[in-house]
């Protein structure tokens, strides 16, 4: 609850993909509100225009709920942050429009935030880590990054599709449905628990990079041949895909000699992946930190918190420079708040 008059409240808007989220956080790292409304496609993956339409419909409701949860009025806000990229154009633009309107109406500064960096920063805040090697795995991203001389550097990444994308596409091919509160990945994970027969499929690791497109093709082909039980395919697909990201995370860990592993993104919800990484951490005598689900999936609080960090080190985004950046890699952003 809001109590201090001098506290700075930052409202953050997240809208890179299927979630429209609003979070409110304070300078001390307190999250006062974190409300999200997700778009669920009737069929297939995210349709950018439909998702953006959803965001526009729910925006004012989500904003109200967030302010209510925080127990503050919009006039108490000192700063508006929004995810400026990377992500889907129509979705990003909807969030940015809301952010600009709020900042202009309230006459307070605006800060554009890099979505991937926000994932790392909220993860560090919520797990009390300071300098982790981060595995960020979601429907749109597969990045192994760590801080080095002024920026988050990319040590490894996917050469083609993201891990979550690979799992989602396979799940849809298998006829699984995305329901409210049960994403496709969770449905796949549940089926995988009943798998016991390991089916070998391509395992592609290039240095610290991974590639999932061949694995996906192979899994879908085997699925259509109907030779194996779906549970066994789900199980094997997870085992192979997760072993790939684990190997490159371990390689990056050995290379950078960091002392903390941070796991975030939507796929971080997977218990098997968490367990595999915790084994690596134990083996290397480093800490394993899993970001709580509410802050691991896309959320507004991470944008608010990162916006505050940036603002406190002098970053503001004038409205005329607040165009969204569909392509905006994590290693393109200076991080003045880490010294």
């Amino acid at each position: 609850m809001a109590n201090s008059i001098n506290e700075i409240y930052c409202l953050g808007i997240e809208s890179t993909a299927d979630d429209f989220g609003v979070g409110i956080s304070t300078c001390s790292g307190e999250v006062l509100a974190n409300i999200s409304d997700g778009y669920i496609p009737e069929k297939g993956g995210i349709h950018p225009r439909e998702a953006a339409r959803h965001h526009a419909m729910v925006a004012s409701d989500v904003l109200d709920k967030a302010l209510n949860q925080a127990g503050i009025k919009s006039s108490d806000l000192s700063l508006i942050a929004f995810s400026q990229g990377p992500g889907l154009g129509p979705c990003l633009r909807t969030g940015a429009t809301v952010a600009r309107a709020l900042a202009a109406y309230l006459n307070i500064p605006l800060v554009g935030v890099n979505h991937s960096i926000a994932h790392v920063e909220i993860g560090k805040l919520k797990t009390n880590t300071t300098d982790p090697i981060t595995l960020y795995v979601s429907g749109g991203n597969t990045i192994i990054s760590a801080f080095n001389s002024g920026r988050y550097r990319i040590f490894g990444e996917t050469l083609d599709i993201a891990l979550g994308n690979c799992l989602d596409v396979f799940s849809r091919e298998a006829g699984l449905k995305h329901k409210k509160g049960i994403p496709l990945g969770a449905a796949l994970e549940k089926l995988a628990l009943d798998g016991n027969n390991f089916v070998l499929m391509p395992y592609i690791v290039k240095g610290m990079d991974v590639s999932f497109s061949g694995l996906l093709t192979s899994a879908v082909t085997l699925l259509r041949q109907k030779k194996y039980r779906l549970q066994d395919l789900c199980y094997s697909l997870q085992e192979i895909a997760f072993a790939m990201v684990c190997e490159v995370t371990e390689r990056a860990l050995a290379h950078t000699e960091k002392k903390e592993i941070l796991l975030t993104g939507g796929v971080a919800a997977n218990n098997r992946l968490q367990f595999m990484l915790s084994l690596i951490a134990k083996d290397h005598g480093v800490s394993f930190n899993k970001v709580p689900l509410e802050y691991a999936t896309d959320n507004g609080a991470m944008i608010a918190w990162t916006g505050l960090l940036a603002f406190r080190s002098g970053v503001v985004t004038p409205i005329e420079k607040s165009m969204v950046k569909l392509r905006w890699r994590i290693d393109r952003v200076d991080i003045p708040w880490i010294t």
Partner: peptide, 11 residues
């Protein structure tokens, strides 16, 4: 590597 499936690991 204990995190890997034994068959995959051996291979």
């Amino acid at each position: 590597k204990k995190y890997r499936h034994p068959q995959l690991d051996e291979r």
